[in-house]
Design a protein around this nucleic acid. Structure first.
Lengths: 169, 169
DNA sequence: TGCTAATTGACAGTATACTGCCAATGTGGG
DNA sequence: CCCACATTGGCAGTATACTGTCAATTAGCA
């Protein structure tokens, strides 16, 4: 059977990096949700919790820079984490606009408990590849994300995380 | 200056494949929107248009299998493409449930015109890497997406696209 | 000091994504 | 033929993502 013109043209989509990254994102999220379903936490909420845990007293704007999430999106993420009592929002005394974010005891416990599941997620995502290929892909991915950092609307600014320390102590 | 414990812990996020794929997806979409802004088309809408163009008379359910998009999501995507007059929805005579999808003249023209921009998008996404690394990454990505196909809720079923031919001719 | 800039959090609006449900319709076994 | 089941498209609800706007507040400069 000769190859159909259909397939030839769709290959332009199937082999495009943009399409492949979209698929991998879908797959990664699906694996995360499945592996962590007992914790009722999304990948985004997990990353936000980690960042708040490692940067106690950070504000929402700086948090968005640390995990490279859109500030508008982050608002609802924070709200949901607060509803679940995993974080607390406290108004800053020296700046009435700012609300500082802190992990609650429950949030810290959750992070501790979910860690093995998250480790399984990251392993499962790359599992189909041979060990050497996993390292190669991961290395190239890290490079590409770093070199393309400015291309996204919300570039990663890890160093922003340190600014609040000047105010808080 | 000694490395902060903050950075050590955040590295667990920054080097996780799930996080890196999310970042690359954000970056790829941002580049697409920027490069194709004159056409007012999203990456998802573009992929749907291509698939409809290469599979005239496909229905929404089969379309979702061909591009691996969720069927619920696809409903609104199709609606927007129809509003913009890039596609047409015609009821199937032999099955009153089904609505068949066709590219309009305007849709075909758009696909033709947008192609150079989309080519630039795909090039820009990988541009920061050396040529050999681009090929390596793309090859591993294709492998990984294929091998993880069943892990996503909506696996790619390219062969589904051929089923409607039995009915339409 | 006072006016303008910038910052912060919040919100409205649009567009993916997914879960689950529904009615209409089609299909196949008894 | 009839009834259980599957399929199709649509919808409600939730959760990212992004654009743009806004009021409150702060900061910087004349």
């Amino acid at each position: 059977m000769p190859s159909k013109p259909d397939n030839v043209t769709m290959d332009a989509v199937y082999t495009a990096p943009g399409y492949l990254f979209r698929r991998m994102q879908q797959i990664a999220v699906a694996i995360f949700i499945e592996e962590c379903k007992e914790f009722d936490l999304t990948p985004v909420q997990y990353a936000a919790l980690i960042a708040i845990g490692t940067h106690p007293g950070i504000d929402a704007t700086r948090l968005s820079a640390v995990i490279a999430f859109d500030r508008s999106t982050l608002g609802s993420v924070i709200e949901r984490l607060e509803t679940k009592s995993y974080i607390e929002r406290k108004p800053a005394v020296e700046d009435k606009r700012v609300k500082l974010l802190y992990l609650t005891k429950a949030g810290a416990n959750l992070l501790r408990d979910i860690m093995p599941s998250v480790d399984r997620v990251q392993a499962r995502i790359l599992q189909p590849l041979k060990s050497a290929d996993r390292k190669t892909l991961l290395g190239l991915l890290e490079q590409l994300v770093d070199l393309n950092n400015e291309a996204s609307r919300v570039p990663l600014r890890a160093e922003d995380a340190l600014e609040h320390l000047g105010k808080a102590g």
